[in-house]
Structures are given as structure tokens and as C-alpha cells.
């Protein structure tokens, strides 16, 4: 065997475990779920082929799906802009040499690495309507009609949004900080020489040069927000009523509570479609506002 062949073989051997894992647990599962979405299957009796019935039911008849879809959409609209905006603001502050910079950096990033379940347990107390920190604060500053947060269908989703923003804003912040630091100082110097003020520099230099990062942050946030599950699972169980029920939660219920594997697979594929379209549209329109050097 020549050295070249030996090396090729070694490379394949090294790749094999990962590849097998991928083939079985990702690719295999994807193929399986796509086939499953045309069947009715409870894991016990034989699957029955139902054609497109899972999908027609989903789009035309299932009111709960429409509701969880709307909830998820509100969640995305509530979290993504907030995370991006707050992340940018935090990054702009923390990239400077402000006092306590290291502390705040850690404080903002810490929630990202805390397991959601643990964080949600703490937020459960914070959101407590009578004795929670949040309402106590609101009471101290004179709010009279205190929201009952998790037990009020009108506020429960807002509470989940707040938790999710707090939890993941650190990720956006870190991305923006990296983006800001990669903008060459020469550009700023040139702007300064031309007499641009801080606002103009920000709008005409920082924002455009940061746009690839912004684009990345938005895309990642949209994708992950559509998949919201654990916050609602721990904090509210999807309730009160269906107020915080989301698409992934609904997939989980269908698959592992009611054992409707086919239907759950169909919803999963619809969710994939939704995320695909959302991401595709963003890629299509990025040319209008994203600048690459």
C-alpha cells in the first residue's frame, strides 16, 4: 500500500464513527420521519398509510395547531428583535473600556450556559404573582394592576419571552462584540478625519460593516426561536389553557403523550418548511442590506 492510500484509508477510518452516527441518528431519522408523516402509527399496531391526510388535517382542521403556530410566531416576533437589539446595545457598551466590563460580560453571558430547566425554576419564583421579585419591584415603583404572569393567559407568553431573552441575549452580545472588534480601526480614523460625528459613524460605518454579523445573529435566532420548547415545558406546561403551547411542544405531545407518531412527524416537517422558508427569505433579501468587504 502506498503512503497515499494508507493515509486515505486512515482518514476514512477516522471519519467512519462520526459518519455512521450521522447516518443512523440524523440522516436515517430524517428519512424515517419523512416516510412516517404519510402514516398513522402508535408504535404498537402496524402503521397504516394515510397519504396526505396528516397534512390536510394539520392545515385545514386542527385548530390547536393553528393556535400553537400563532403562539410560536408571536414568540419569534417577541424574542428575535429584542435579542438582536439588546445584544447590539450591550456589545456596543461592553466593547469599550467601561468600568466593571469583565463582570458585566460574564453576567450577560452566564445565562447562556445555565441549563434552561434550572433557570426556569428560578424564574418561576421571580414571576410569582404575589411574592415574586418582579411584581414586588413593579409594586414598589407604583404599578397598581400587577400582571399575574404565568397564571394569566394574556401574560404567560410575555413571561416566556422575557425569560428567553434573558437566557440567550448573551449569545447575540458575544457575536456582536466579535463583529465590532473585527471592524478595522483605520475606517474609524478616516471617518474622524472627514469630520463625522458619533451618530454618523455608527450609522454609516459600524452598522454596514457589522451587517454580516447582524445577519448571522438574526438567522440563528429565528431558527432557534421557532423551536422553543423547554422554557414552556418547565415554566407553564404550555398553559394556562393553550396560552404558551408551541409547535415543538405540540410535536412532543403528539409523539410522546398521545403516541401519534405519523402526525407528529408531519408537524415536524411543516415546522422544517416554515423555518426553511423564513431562512430562505432572509438569505434572498440579505443582498439589500448586508455588506461584505
Amino acid at each position: 500500500m502506498t503512503l497515499r492510500r494508507k493515509e486515505t484509508l486512515a482518514a476514512w477510518l477516522f471519519l467512519l464513527p462520526g459518519f455512521v452516527g450521522f447516518a443512523i441518528f440524523v440522516f436515517g431519522a430524517v428519512v424515517f420521519s419523512s416516510v412516517l408523516s404519510f402514516f398513522e402509527w402508535d408504535m404498537l399496531t402496524k402503521p397504516t398509510f394515510v397519504g396526505l391526510r396528516n397534512f390536510t388535517k394539520l392545515f385545514l382542521a386542527d385548530k390547536t395547531f393553528h393556535l400553537v403556530f400563532r403562539n410560536t410566531l408571536w414568540f419569534v416576533l417577541g424574542t428575535v428583535p429584542t435579542r438582536v437589539l439588546l445584544g447590539l446595545i450591550f456589545a456596543l457598551i461592553l466593547v469599550r473600556n467601561v468600568p466593571g466590563r469583565t463582570f458585566f460580560r460574564a453576567a450577560i453571558f452566564l445565562p447562556v450556559i445555565i441549563p434552561t430547566v434550572a433557570a426556569a425554576m428560578v424564574w418561576r419564583w421571580i414571576f410569582n404573582a404575589d411574592f415574586g421579585l418582579l411584581n414586588d419591584f413593579l409594586y414598589q415603583i407604583g404599578v397598581s394592576n400587577l400582571p399575574r404572569w404565568l397564571s394569566d393567559p394574556k401574560w404567560a407568553l410575555v413571561a416566556i419571552v422575557i425569560l428567553s431573552v434573558w437566557k440567550d441575549v448573551g449569545f447575540s452580545t458575544v457575536m456582536f462584540m466579535a463583529g465590532l472588534q473585527s471592524i478595522p480601526t483605520t475606517v474609524y480614523e478616516a471617518a474622524k478625519l472627514d469630520g463625522a460625528n458619533a451618530w454618523k459613524t455608527f450609522v454609516h460605518i459600524t452598522l454596514p460593516l457589522l451587517s454580516p454579523t447582524t445577519f448571522f445573529v438574526i438567522v440563528i435566532n429565528v431558527i432557534s426561536s421557532f423551536q422553543v420548547f423547554d422554557q414552556a415545558y418547565v415554566l407553564t406546561g404550555g398553559g394556562p389553557g393553550n396560552a404558551t403551547n408551541t409547535i415543538v411542544y405540540y410535536i412532543y405531545n403528539n409523539a410522546f403523550q398521545w403516541f401519534r407518531m405519523g402526525y407528529a412527524a408531519a408537524i415536524a416537517w411543516v415546522l422544517f418548511g416554515i423555518i426553511f422558508i423564513a431562512t430562505f427569505v432572509q438569505f434572498k433579501y440579505q443582498r439589500k442590506w448586508v455588506y461584505y468587504e
Binding site: 393567559p153 394574556k154 389553557g241
Partner: peptide
Amino acid sequence: WEIFEYVTRELDYVWTGQ
């Protein structure tokens, strides 16, 4: 159990006064 779970969920709207 699915019926029971459905009713239990909807009754949340009564318990919360909605």
C-alpha cells in the same frame, strides 16, 4: 385521557377568569 387532558386545559380559562 386525551379527552380529559383537553377538558382540563380548557378549564384553565375558567380558573383564570378569562
